[in-house]
């Protein structure tokens, strides 16, 4: 798993680059998840998003997720997890996860597990900017 990549980045994310990063001659499938900035939240138009992270811990937690993936799906060949921070416009990718595996089923399952777990454990926060205000996601009830 030395080749696996887990990074917080400030530059635009490239699906082609992450697909290439998990290339392996023994892989029969690559699954990529790309999380995209959506133009609305509960019917309210979103102008743009801002992401903030505890970068060192976020990278460590993504690496833990990758290790858990490899333990659970031994046929996984490579994992890349990238999360972008800073200001992101509508339609841009905030997170990219790529998993290559011997067979497609493991690649799909591992990729889904990786994004679901990322959203629960990785210290990244998102602020939604609307026409008439802004709100940090995750504490609306607070």
């Amino acid at each position: 798993m030395d080749g696996d990549i887990y990074k917080i980045v400030e530059q635009p994310l490239s699906p082609d680059a992450v697909a290439a990063s998990v290339g392996d001659p023994a892989a029969g499938g690559v699954v990529i998840f790309s999380g995209i900035v959506r133009n609305e939240k509960d019917g309210r138009p979103v102008k743009y998003l801002e992401y903030e992270a505890h970068a060192a811990m976020a990278e460590a937690k993504m690496r833990e997720i990758g290790a858990a993936v490899r333990q659970r799906w031994p046929s996984v060949k490579a994992v890349t997890m990238l999360h972008r921070i800073g200001r992101l416009e509508i339609g841009e990718s905030s997170v990219l996860i790529a998993v290559s595996a011997a067979h497609r089923r493991e690649a799909f399952e591992a990729c889904q597990y990786a994004i679901d777990t990322l959203k629960q454990r990785v210290p990244v926060w998102k602020k939604e900017h609307f026409e008439d205000g802004e709100v940090w996601v995750g504490l609306q009830g607070g």
Partner: peptide, 21 residues
Amino acid sequence: CLFPPVSGGSAGRSRTARRAS
């Protein structure tokens, strides 16, 4: 470090973040 509930990824709903916390 003091963290609010995390909300990485994208297109997430607030109840996802609360469940995560």
